[in-house]
């Protein structure tokens, strides 16, 4: 399957020499909805912003639908629909104004498509942006991104400030639109339960490095949870369970010798994040 987003040895270092991304290889298959998961400072936003040409990679390269966004931002933007972390709407303008604005800024913007999406959600088109709830603003941001009819959608934690119902509604619209248009989406989020139902791939970043890149089904099938802190080559990482007990995420054996219980997606993510944190703690201690 060819790739909609491809990063090869991607690195981004900000001033003060902090690496936000380091040596990241990513391949997001066309037509997939990939969840980009990681703690704060993991490099999720940096990866997404690099995809829109907002960040210049320090090392390696990133291709979005075959285009390097930093070298040819115009061509890359034409292939990308972007939903920023906060909706970033113009508070003085109405929802309808935003659709018109997008049409003036972007040749080929499908204003009818964007309006239809908004009308389906019963969003008042003549309301000013500052009169909308956080969820409605996020929906406007998504409708504008979908109106671009871009083959790649990059969504930078759009669910962060939404209540559960608004999150569910947002994801429903996203999944429906992606399936309908055959687009590819990369969605960064902290909320594992929501993305489990919406996404088909999981990309985990930690400390600027890639920790996991698999389909959701593979991610779950490839791991098990065992009680207590375990040791061995198959152990990914140990973390505290909700009841305070330490559990370990282990790679599921390929043989018939199966130990522990099946892991949830959240546990897969936690195990890999714990594994990603350990080397960093060692680095800090050193």
């Amino acid at each position: 399957m060819d790739q909609a987003i491809e990063a090869i040895g991607l690195g981004k270092r900000y001033r003060r020499r902090r690496w936000a991304l380091r040596d990241v290889d990513v391949a997001v298959p066309r037509g997939s909805i990939t969840a980009l998961v990681g703690p704060n400072g993991a490099g999720k936003s940096t990866l997404i912003k690099a995809g829109v040409g907002f960040e210049r990679p320090t090392a390696g390269r990133l291709l979005v639908d075959g285009v390097d966004p930093w070298r040819d931002r115009g061509a890359a933007i034409a292939k990308v629909g972007y939903v920023p972390q906060s909706p970033s709407l113009y508070r003085e303008l109405t929802v309808n104004d935003h659709v018109r604005l997008a049409a003036t800024l972007r040749p080929g913007f499908d204003a009818h498509h964007a309006r239809r999406r908004l009308e389906e959600l019963s969003l008042p088109l003549d309301s000013r942006a500052d009169e909308l709830s956080g969820g409605q603003q996020a929906q406007v941001g998504l409708a504008l991104a979908l109106g671009t009819r871009a083959p790649v959608l990059l969504l930078d934690e759009p669910l962060a400030s939404l209540d559960p119902l608004a999150r569910r509604e947002f994801l429903h619209v996203l999944v429906e639109a992606v399936r309908e248009d055959g687009a590819t989406a990369l969605l960064s989020s902290h909320v594992i339960t929501d993305i489990e139902q919406a996404c088909d791939r999981l990309l985990v970043l930690g400390g600027g490095r890639k920790l996991l890149d698999l389909s959701i089904a593979e991610s779950i099938a490839a791991h098990r949870i065992v009680a207590a802190r375990a040791a061995g080559d198959d152990v990914v990482g140990s973390f505290m369970d909700v009841d305070g007990a330490t559990v370990s995420l282990v790679r599921a054996p390929t043989t018939s010798l199966v130990r522990g219980r099946a892991a949830t997606l959240e546990e897969v993510v936690l195990g890999h994040l714990a594994a990603g944190r350990a080397p960093r703690l060692l680095e800090l201690a050193a």
Binding site: F54, G74, V80, L105
Partner: peptide, 8 residues
């Protein structure tokens, strides 16, 4: 962020 991501 919105405007510059929309316009080529």
């Amino acid at each position: 962020r919105l405007a510059w991501a929309l316009t080529p």
